[in-house]
Design a protein around this nucleic acid. Structure first.
Lengths: 190, 190, 190, 190
DNA sequence: GATGAATGAGGCTTCATTCAT
DNA sequence: AATGAATGAAGCCTCATTCAT
């Protein structure tokens, strides 16, 4: 049975994306990817080079919060809150954050991860902010986003009850507002 | 070559704590610990059993936010903000969060990590809260704390400028307040 | 270097069979098998899994006394006697008994061995017996068969002189008859 | 607490004898012996040298079938039958055969075992026989004795029912008679 | 002389990668 | 160009033994 080269490439990439997001860089073996993609192991090396480069390709192809950041500054907290709440309560979610938060510990891909956090999350976020300390405010929001990724990984979707989703969104919106909006006065009087 | 069991045990434990916090569970090899502790590999297994058990011992010995949570509910946001700000700006920091956030992806120790997050961070936090949705509020704060750990790992202390520390503390205090305090009205007005 | 999966598999299996029979489970290392099979160690694990599973495969492939038990009850003692005599006097012999008797002490494979003794020796033997106490009679014969395996291992082929083979067969036949045949009167008169 | 040197020696020897008989040479670790004897590991090496030499000492101290062989040729089959039956049905038994049959696979002590089989079982047995082929006859009986050791190790005391003991002794007596007694005519008539 | 900490060797297993076919 | 067999490195762990104290 002849195989279409492009199709195989795509199947490998799909499998890699899925597995990296679910298990993290370290836990994913080349054999696992090959099995999941129903492709030959050597093809992965042939098409993408080493494991690291395949990971780089996956990162590069993953959009930067597809749709999430396409709002103005005012709507951003609510939008982020919904995104994070979905990831905490449902089984699915954009794999970008999952991939990053599950793979951040591997030094081999440290730079890739760092650059990706910058280009996919922190910088787009910062670009939508006005006022002072944009980097700092975007940084805190980024930390919260990635932290929920870790939390999700540890506790699955059970950390909050399903019926709490509205409360969760409301609370997260307030938190992201605290992260992102300009404050008139310092919040720690005295 | 010293021959002091307690001293060697401590050296191993110190090395393990340092390395696990810096590199994460997966990246730390028994050989690396042995070299760092200037001890024989076999001794690690003799004193602590398997690698997983050594990690458990490290986790168990690491206090639960030493001193950080010893405040009432009102002072908690400020306290957490200072703690997190210190970790983001200084070279040192409590290794608890670092260890946890760098090791969360390893399935072998998944339960240990989860239990530790609960017993060291989430539950103590929740215990200090009053009002509704305590678990949810403590959960979001926990996510933020762990997310800053990941951020710190990725960017070192360079994510915020040193002179921004006051602004950072102020901002983080507001964010933790948004996480933890009881709100009177829904936070998403039209 | 050949690149034939089936051939390599067979070489590994042959080497394993030979070595397990000669040295017993414990004394055979994966490295030794690899060297004997002229194959890479990792291939053994890839093809057969763990050492225990390779041993199970060897056991499974070894027939159950090929041809030895294909006689009726009357001819059985003589047949067994010849089989055992051959093993005690010649350099070769069915590796089943050798493998079992040399590996019985390893707790890791205790169940495998036990099941194999049952399915390859004791139960086929018992199935050919009529009259009372078939399990007991087959059990004693099994003990004798395995004991000669141990004896062979300890003394090689020197335990009996070559010219004694006829006497050995005669004597063993009598012994197996005493094991297996139905007796009319109790064998211990006052 | 001062320890009596002789007492410690004896405790070590006792523990070693017990463990070697129960588990076989390979499975017994120096630490296990030390723990069982409640003694220091280094003392074993100090008192007995290497593990092999400790095993030699155990073998040397173990009598040669204490009491079993103290009968004339006529009573020997019955005596051996009772001995073997006891080992197959009860929890206890002379550790000589157990030690030997469980340790025969270790090449390190191969010679020790072989010499011990000769001096403790085969030669005493042979010395009590008259007529031709004494070595051969004693050899077959030895094989049966050791084979029951292996059987016992594999199946515990469940290979025969408890109420079958009389039948077992009767049968074994007949078998040992077939091994040991002088036959007038070859047992395999045409 | 007694203690137990320290050691080096070696065991099994798994991985990413390369190399014949 | 595609396949998958082969490889070497490395990981964790355990053992008998030696060496300071």
């Amino acid at each position: 049975m002849r195989r279409d080269r492009e199709d195989t490439r795509r199947r490998i990439l799909d499998a890699a994306r899925r597995l990296f997001a679910e298990l993290g860089y370290e836990q994913v073996t080349m054999r696992l990817i090959a099995a999941e993609a129903d492709a030959n192991i050597a093809l992965i090396n042939r098409y993408f080079g080493a494991k690291r480069e395949l990971f780089a390709e996956v990162l590069a192809q993953q959009g930067r919060f597809p749709g999430v950041l396409d709002v103005d500054e005012e709507g951003l907290p609510r939008r982020l809150a919904e995104y994070v709440a979905d990831r905490l309560t449902s089984g699915t979610g954009s794999p970008v954050v999952a991939t990053i938060s599950r793979s951040a510990a591997s030094p081999e891909i440290h730079e890739l991860i760092r650059d990706r956090v910058l280009s996919a999350i922190l910088e787009p976020l910062e670009a939508r902010l006005t006022g002072p300390d944009t980097r700092l405010r975007a940084g805190i929001a980024t930390a919260l986003i990635m932290g929920t990724g870790t939390l999700r990984q540890l506790f699955g979707t059970d950390v909050v009850r399903a019926q709490d989703r509205d409360a969760l969104v409301a609370r997260l919106t307030a938190v992201f507002e605290a992260c992102l909006t300009v404050v008139d006065r310092p919040s720690s009087p005295t």
